[in-house]
Computed example of a mutant assay.
Amino acid sequence: MKREIKDYFLGLDVGTGSVGWAVTDTDYKLLKANRKDLWGMRLFDTAETAEARRLHRGARRRIERRNKRIKLLQELFAEEIAKKDEVFFQRMKESPLYSEDKTILQENSLF
């Protein structure tokens, strides 16, 4: 026994957390299969956005670019600064490690 295939429409409503569907004939009346109307929906868990990852990635890239700029400037001025103080950049790199430097910086600050 062969069934005659009629023209039909499949309507989909795709959202961020659900999918709705319906099957109608050309007159927009719901079709039936096994005495059930052909329509329904599925709900999904809400997806996570990429915002947090994007913000962290952006911050990481900003820090990386800043460090590259500082390194380039140090390379450009290294020869001239070495004439005055050969260990200037090394001291600058290590200064947060010494509490004496922190008190000197606080005394010299404008605020």
Results as ranks from 00 to 15, higher is better:
residue 1 M to V: 08
residue 2 K to S: 09
residue 2 K to P: 03
residue 4 E to V: 14
residue 6 K to G: 00
residue 6 K to A: 03
residue 7 D to R: 15
residue 8 Y to A: 14
residue 8 Y to G: 04
residue 11 G to K: 05
residue 12 L to W: 05
residue 12 L to H: 08
residue 13 D to N: 11
residue 14 V to I: 15
residue 15 G to V: 01
residue 15 G to N: 07
residue 15 G to Y: 05
residue 16 T to S: 15
residue 18 S to C: 01
residue 18 S to P: 00
residue 18 S to F: 07
residue 21 W to H: 08
residue 22 A to W: 01
residue 23 V to M: 04
residue 24 T to H: 02
residue 24 T to C: 08
residue 24 T to W: 02
residue 24 T to G: 03
residue 26 T to V: 08
residue 27 D to W: 04
residue 28 Y to M: 13
residue 30 L to T: 02
residue 31 L to G: 03
residue 32 K to D: 00
residue 32 K to A: 04
residue 35 R to I: 00
residue 35 R to D: 06
residue 35 R to S: 03
residue 36 K to W: 05
residue 37 D to I: 04
residue 37 D to P: 03
residue 37 D to F: 15
residue 38 L to Q: 08
residue 39 W to F: 14
residue 39 W to S: 11
residue 40 G to I: 04
residue 41 M to C: 12
residue 41 M to G: 13
residue 43 L to G: 04
residue 44 F to C: 06
residue 45 D to T: 11
residue 46 T to M: 15
residue 46 T to E: 15
residue 46 T to D: 12
residue 49 T to D: 10
residue 49 T to F: 03
residue 52 A to T: 00
residue 53 R to L: 05
residue 54 R to Y: 09
residue 54 R to Q: 12
residue 55 L to D: 06
residue 55 L to I: 03
residue 55 L to W: 07
residue 56 H to N: 09
residue 57 R to K: 12
residue 57 R to P: 00
residue 61 R to T: 00
residue 61 R to L: 09
residue 62 R to M: 06
residue 62 R to Y: 07
residue 62 R to A: 08
residue 65 R to Q: 11
residue 66 R to M: 11
residue 67 N to W: 03
residue 67 N to E: 06
residue 68 K to R: 13
residue 69 R to Q: 11
residue 70 I to V: 13
residue 71 K to H: 06
residue 73 L to Q: 08
residue 73 L to A: 10
residue 74 Q to I: 05
residue 74 Q to V: 02
residue 74 Q to F: 07
residue 75 E to Y: 09
residue 76 L to N: 09
residue 77 F to S: 09
residue 78 A to L: 08
residue 80 E to W: 07
residue 80 E to A: 14
residue 82 A to G: 02
residue 83 K to D: 01
residue 83 K to V: 09
residue 84 K to N: 02
residue 84 K to C: 06
residue 88 F to L: 06
residue 88 F to V: 00
residue 89 F to P: 01
residue 89 F to I: 02
residue 90 Q to I: 07
residue 92 M to Y: 15
residue 93 K to I: 00
residue 94 E to Q: 13
residue 96 P to C: 05
residue 98 Y to W: 10
residue 99 S to W: 07
residue 99 S to N: 06
residue 100 E to M: 08
residue 101 D to F: 15
residue 101 D to S: 11
residue 102 K to I: 07
residue 103 T to K: 15
residue 105 L to K: 14
residue 106 Q to E: 06
residue 106 Q to W: 06
residue 107 E to G: 13
residue 109 S to Y: 12
residue 110 L to F: 14
residue 110 L to K: 12
residue 111 F to I: 09
